[in-house]
Design a protein around this nucleic acid. Sequence first.
DNA 1: GTAGGTCTTCGAGCGCACTCGAAGCCAGGG
DNA 2: CCCTGGCTTCGAGTGCGCTCGAAGACCTAC
Lengths: 165, 165
Amino acid sequence: MTTTLEHHHPASRLRTVLESAAAEDGTLPPLDGELVRAMALPDDLPETLGIAEVADLTGITAHTLRYYERIGLLAVARDAAGRRTYDRAALGRVMFITWLRLSGMPIASVTRYIELVQAGPHTSDERLALLLAHRAAVVSHLRDLQAALAVVDYKIAAYGGTCGS
Amino acid sequence: MTTTLEHHHPASRLRTVLESAAAEDGTLPPLDGELVRAMALPDDLPETLGIAEVADLTGITAHTLRYYERIGLLAVARDAAGRRTYDRAALGRVMFITWLRLSGMPIASVTRYIELVQAGPHTSDERLALLLAHRAAVVSHLRDLQAALAVVDYKIAAYGGTCGS
DNA sequence: GTAGGTCTTCGAGCGCACTCGAAGCCAGGG
DNA sequence: CCCTGGCTTCGAGTGCGCTCGAAGACCTAC
């Protein structure tokens, strides 16, 4: 019990590729690596981007991007004037973080993961374990949602009949 | 997932939903144990239950049940001593609320729905609209989750290779 | 009669994830 | 030269959904 649908908006940008590949009924075809790579990045990006551009691309507000950086979730380079400059790798990190957040991973866990990446390749076991554990949580959540959706559908179908609750 | 809605009362439907959902994948973290209890109602229920029994059956804590009542989400009868007594209908309401919450509906919307039910049958149009809107939100959330899962899976599969983020 | 457990109310506190606002710096245009 | 507009920092505020604790009522067992 703790699912909020309210911040969908970050997903919207990232999801455009998926939507173009989605079937009419809203079901999503199973994603393979190619599709994931396809939604990764447009090719005509400048070398570095400002915070507003990243915000625009990812759907994460500039405020939130700064917040992420403040809590140590994200390191970003600066230009001579002290402004944040996101290169391609940084943008990729933002997008990956967004996916993790979107899949319901708590910020603390995302931070942990990022720390492990920073720490070097010898942490790959723990990283993988973290991802696998999270995967199980996501699958479980998916299952809950599908069940709940079935209940809602049942209720919808029951309209016209009596509906005590 | 959606099909053949029998004209039985919700509890039996919930059980079948659980079974079909549980058959899909083996893993279930602790939160899902509570979910299971929420769905699998024993048939030999007493006429009325105390708050602890409802908490036990639904996985909602007594504290939260009282909270729900405080905010007007749930009306519950009392016995002579002032204790809450949940009859079968009340239990059904608790379970339905649980499903709505689980599907990510904000408490405010659940409250609105319950108010509409209370208001009488002439509100069924608005109720249905609310449910349909919520259904769309759930489907959208499901799609996000599936996409995010694919990204995570992609990352998992990429382990052993280089993983920049 | 008293100890223990379960219930009651009420209000306050917490954790998470933002979200906002104020005050100031800095580059470019008119 | 100054104005505008976007960036910076920092701290504080917001909203949601619980979650907890204190103080007291009441039933049951011993």
